[in-house]
Amino acid sequence: MPPSTDVRIRPVRHHGRLVAAALAAFFLAGLLWSLARNPNIHWAVVGKYLLKDLTLQGVGVTVYLAAISMVIGLAGGVVVAVMRLSRNPVLSSLAWLFIWIFRGTPVLVQIIFWGFLGAFYKQISIGIPFTDLTFWSADTNSLVTPMVAALLALGLNEMAYSAEIIRAGILSVDEGQYEAAHSLGMTPGQTLRRIILPQAMRMIIPPMGSETIMMLKTTALVSVIAGSDLLTNLQQVYAQNFEVIPLLIVASIWYLAMTSLLSIPQYYLERRYGKGRSRT
């Protein structure tokens, strides 16, 4: 018998999804309405300080801290990752010790430590170890300013995390790539730069993008040493006018804006290095 032409194909209706979406939209609208009508938030104060000079200066310092710290973390992370993978037990052990210390202690503790380094060492000197011969010396507090302390703490902490991310990416490359590069006469350094790291980027980019966003938010911790970042500047204001909630909302708006902007290049980098393997 010929197949019937009266059969109609209808998609399955997902009523549960519609109900869940309607409930979520309803509660979201209620929350936004509650926030907009809440007299304790003082939206006028939020609007006043959202684009104020001290806020914009804090945003600039926050971006600067995050960018320089990530450069230090990435550059040093590659070195530490290569040391960690080295067959030299001394280099591998030193890299492991570095990662163990900076990943095992809270970044807030590290920031405070570098901020009060002068309490440990009054002078920073360069000379011959185990002797009294000194070539150069400077006061620690004048050399390690709050900004320098913040960069040291954030950069070294990021270096430890980046090293593990990069090491995982390098280990994800098939060993046959090393053998093929060596058969072509490439040195280990050339193999790493031209063959291994470009392929490892597929595994490195997603977690490194998350680390960059995390670094941007972690800069708020430098407020404990008066780092002049966004949160520090706003804290100094609400310590005087007691408008804590409105100014924290200002900080949250700027952090959300900056992290959203950082998500854009991460998306395109993931697409570029994920060609041929990304899911539709």
Rank of each mutant, 00 (worst) to 15 (best):
Ile124Leu: 15
Lys122Tyr: 08
Asp132Glu: 13
Pro129Ala: 09
Gly73Phe: 03
Leu28Glu: 07
Val46His: 04
Lys48Asn: 11
Asn88Trp: 11
Trp43Met: 11
Gln57Arg: 13
Arg103Gly: 01
Lys48Ile: 04
Pro106His: 06
Thr131Ser: 13
His42Gly: 07
Phe120Tyr: 14
Phe27Pro: 09
Ile41Thr: 06
Phe98Gln: 04
Tyr121Gly: 08
Thr62Phe: 01
Ala22Ser: 15
Ala95Ile: 08
Trp96Val: 10
Ala67Asn: 09
Thr134Glu: 12
Phe130Met: 15
Ala24Lys: 06
Asp53Ile: 09
Ser86Ile: 06
Leu35Asp: 05
Leu97Ile: 14
Gly77Pro: 09
Arg87His: 12
Val80Tyr: 00
Gly60Ser: 09
Ile112Arg: 04
Ala138Thr: 11
Pro106Cys: 10
Asp139Pro: 08
Gly16Tyr: 02
Ile128Pro: 03
Ser86Met: 06
Ile72Thr: 11
Ile128Tyr: 02
Val79Asp: 05
Gly30Leu: 12
Val82Tyr: 00
Phe102Gln: 04
Gly127Gln: 07
Ala66His: 05
Pro89Cys: 10
Ile111Ser: 04
Lys52Ala: 15
Ala29Tyr: 06
Val63His: 00
Phe130Gln: 13
Thr55Tyr: 00
Leu91Ile: 05
Ser125Val: 13
Gly127Asn: 06
Ala24Ile: 12
Ala21Leu: 15
Leu91Gln: 10
Pro129His: 04
Thr105Glu: 02
Ile112Ala: 12
Ala22Val: 15
Asp53Ser: 14
